[in-house]
Design a protein around this nucleic acid. Structure first.
Lengths: 230, 230, 230, 230
DNA sequence: GATGAATGAGGTTTCATTCAT
DNA sequence: GATGAATGAAACCTCATTCAT
């Protein structure tokens, strides 16, 4: 264990390389252990770097955490926005956002835990960037919802924020269950469909199938017309 | 100099009293500071007890945390189950569970944070009791949902767990927003109503305009009347 | 080296004993190395105590230093004030203060260095006690001087503070020379006498040559004798 | 992105220029922070030079300190010796030395603190040059004093070193008071005069005016002569 | 049973110095 | 000659846990 791929000492790397080595190691250790239990010494070892070196690139442990998470968020935001390009219709758009979120969550479970555990409590701190990123991500879904309201695909008597909380909250919760129980891995497509169904149609059983109802109604209308024309 | 007139009390309390003093102090300190930053010494002082005494009652810090949370969960479960006694109909039952959850969350914000931060990550550990309690709480809502399916108040093509995740997840997410941003305090009734509306009816605007249906129905009635008059 | 007089571990000592052990070790290490270069770990080892134990008694390194120095000052003040009890006349009083100062300085050279190096620069800090002690010591000499002015033993056209600075300053400077050069050890009595002579009489050579005066007086006597014999 | 148009200057300066840049920065940082808390990196930045470059010119941190202080001493010695050129009479010479000392002290308070704090304790180290400079400065005053003894302006029964210690010591002490308390700034002329008065005339109130005594004595002599001539 | 003094490993961070570039 | 990235030892301090009293 602890294979040193590069000669261990005193190689001068370009700044970007070193930094991403450290970020990668920090990402891994933070994900595994959480913020408090992650030791800078371990991160250093993981990055194949002396402890002091970390402090040449990041001003302290919190800064390192912030940078790790910022990187994660940027990727998530980019991916989600890309998924939405050219996607039309509320259902397709929701599907895009949800699918991307699920994908990321299970790709980066550890980091998501970190986000929930450490970053939010940190929010008193110079969170300018952190907070902005959280908001930017959250606003992607809000925008989709608001557009849906404008196009009348979504009713307008529900606060968009509640809708957003419901979707993201469900995903988070479902994610946690997988994280913490040894439940069977999620069927991502099924989850996505169910969320969309609930969100758009609700749980009340389609009393009479609207389709049938409409067809019957049409037949009735035709009947009425024929009778009237008599 | 510095004569201590009484050797520092050493009152021997019944075991239960001591333990609940400690639990109360631990609950408070954990809530305020989080697990890692809460010091056993501070908890001891808060309980009016020597540091060593804690270890007579709890095997270590994690055990103390587990017991604190177990107490919280028990209260939550009891309260929720009581709220459901005599409550009929899916909507009323959902309302009861949601209202109780919101109430507890904002009563015990600190502890909820603890739950999200510390307990879930702990889950590798001897969580037998912890996990059982989580499940027991979660199953209350599951039972309500399943009963709704049985009574056909809820459609049967959606996994009850997704429904549960959606409701709890939404509440958690909304709660976090309050915790971490300085958003305005939640309007609890509004939130409850919106969740129930989305959950039961969905976001899609009611498919057929009742106005049309009514008009057609009126025409139908007039037609039948005319035929009968013939 | 490093004789452990008491069994090294886990003996429970009365609070005062432990504290004075630590103070003694701190006194020694601080004296030898100065504040910055003294390591808490070394002090701990010197006191036969774990590092953490120090922090049960002293809140941090600066506090420990302050307590060491306060102890030193208290002893110095007590001794000096005792030396003055029953001492009459400006010369005797100066001699008492100076002798006591010299004695202390050479008994506690290391600590005096500490005083000069570390405490004074620290003076921004919660120096309430430290500063009060410095002032209290300094005021002993000031009081002697002012009394001398009242009794007209000392001229009143010189600021008492300058006189004080001159005496203490000289002692400090002389002390430093011994500390830092390998000059021969000071003849304490000679130094005391010289300071008193300069202070009281100044350096200007006695204006009239006593020899001349005496000769003239003898001639006067002989003359008178001769006249009388006439 | 982030193209650096010019590789970071790397101007090759004549050796003397580089060195004096570094010395100037070191002088400033050392004065402000003291030896231990001054960081080589900060000095490097202050000098507009890479950290490594300092080590091309100075073998290590202590050497750099020594060179800074040597520069200061040289200036002080030169200035003081210049002040003495053409100055006649013990009082004027003392005044020159004292005034120059006071001036320097308050011009370079930070560095004087450094001297007292760091250099003297360093004395185990290769102090050859440092020590010689201290001695050379100190000997200026010693020479003035010895000349005063030769010209009988100063009594010969007091060790010149004690006199020197008294003068420099007083100045140091007075300086410290200003540094460490928030005493009002010193009236330099008054201080100078008081030191000279004490030093030359002492504190004993001028009992009988020697002038009167001498006049009386002369009258006596004239009387005796007249009698003898009879 | 209760105490709290004592432990000591481990945490983050700093910084003089080196050496590949 | 100059650079500055990299080092790694060492600093102060915290705190869960133990155990003599």
């Amino acid at each position: 264990m602890g294979i040193e791929t590069t000669p261990p000492s005193r190689t001068r790397q370009p700044k970007a390389v070193r930094e991403s080595d450290i970020l990668a190691a920090a990402y891994r250790i933070f994900s595994e252990k959480g913020y408090e239990k992650a030791a800078m010494s371990e991160i250093a070892k993981g990055a194949g770097v002396a402890e002091g070196t970390i402090y040449k690139h990041f001003s302290n442990k919190q800064d390192l955490l912030a940078r790790v998470i910022a990187g994660f968020y940027k990727k998530l935001i980019d991916n989600t926005e890309n998924s939405l390009i050219g996607t039309k219709g509320i259902e397709n758009q929701l599907r895009a956002v949800i699918a991307r979120h699920i994908h990321t969550f299970f790709e980066d479970i550890g980091l998501c835990r970190l986000l929930l555990q450490e970053v939010r409590p940190l929010n008193n701190y110079p969170h300018s960037e952190m907070h902005q990123l959280t908001r930017r991500y959250s606003e992607i879904l809000l925008r989709v919802i608001q557009e849906g309201i404008t196009t009348k695909e979504i009713r307008d008597d529900i606060s968009p924020k509640t809708i957003r909380d419901m979707i993201f909250g469900c995903l988070e919760h479902a994610g946690w269950n997988v994280l913490t129980t040894n439940a069977p891995p999620i069927d991502r497509d099924k989850l996505t469909n169910e969320i969309i169904t609930i969100t758009l149609n609700g749980l009340a059983p389609p009393a009479t199938e609207p389709a049938d109802f409409d067809r019957n109604l049409q037949r009735l209308e035709q009947l009425v017309n024929r009778l009237e024309n008599n």
